[in-house]
Amino acid sequence: MRNKEKLVEILLTLIGLSSVTVLGLIILFIFKEGLPAFAQVGLWQFVTGTRWSPGKNLLGILPMIAGSFVVTAGALVVGLPLGLGCAIYLSEFATAKTAAILKPTIELLAGIPSVVFGFIGLTLMVPFIRNFFGGPGFSVLASALVLGIMILPTMVSVSYDALRAVPPVYREGMLALGSTDWQAVKMVVLPAARPGILAAAILAMGRAIGETMAVIMVAGNSTIIPTSFLDPVRTLTSNIALEMGYATGLHRQALFATGVVLFVIISILNLTARVVVRGKTR
């Protein structure tokens, strides 16, 4: 009996550690494959270079860094207000019945493969943008719209949980003073749920910056720094996905190095966001 207990404990510890080990191996691998490119091109040259032309050994990924930032920011501009508004409606205003139908429906969005989102963007949004705003249609705007919708389920369900976790007595305290529902939400519920809403935004941001397929299909993928919302754009993830199939030698290493840069950026964003959330929670 005692031995069996011990065995299970060891087994579970090993299983627990395995996921961390996998993460460690991935990091080790991309760094090992990518670092030679840094050595050869020069770290500074690599991240600030504005020309990406592997055939001529011009390996600067600033356009892609800029692309990832601008597309993610755009997605958040679209998705955060929509998602938060939806969560507030579900948690504070919808009847239990409506919420019971709407919430699973929104969560279903998360189950749609990203290639389908990309396809809809490609066949509906890209022509729409081309016709009504001009430019090629494949653009920052199209990517931001598609990603903005893709991050909705994350944004809605995490901030919904945060809002639901606010004790009812907080709302009632306000209502008992003669406040309206919205005043109670604005004054008490939102401030109390702020850490959770921030966490929702972080997760949504992670989803947006990491998304590859849907973005490739609507972004246009040219390696220039976009100067308008209607310009085509290439993100860090797209850069890897588009060229990994045929890259060799230094080019291949440079793609791994792109992965390293992406990894570092995401880690920094996550870390900052965590610190911010913890600061707000105390």
Binding site: P167, E172, A176, S179, M187
Partner: peptide
């Protein structure tokens, strides 16, 4: 809303608004 202004309520769990003491009372 008018009824609730006429009939005030204090709860088991005190829930000050995330404001100053003054603003809590002045709300």
């Amino acid at each position: 809303a008018e009824l609730r202004r006429r009939v005030g309520m204090v709860f088991a769990l005190p829930t000050p608004l995330p404001l100053s003491i003054y603003e809590n009372v002045a709300y």
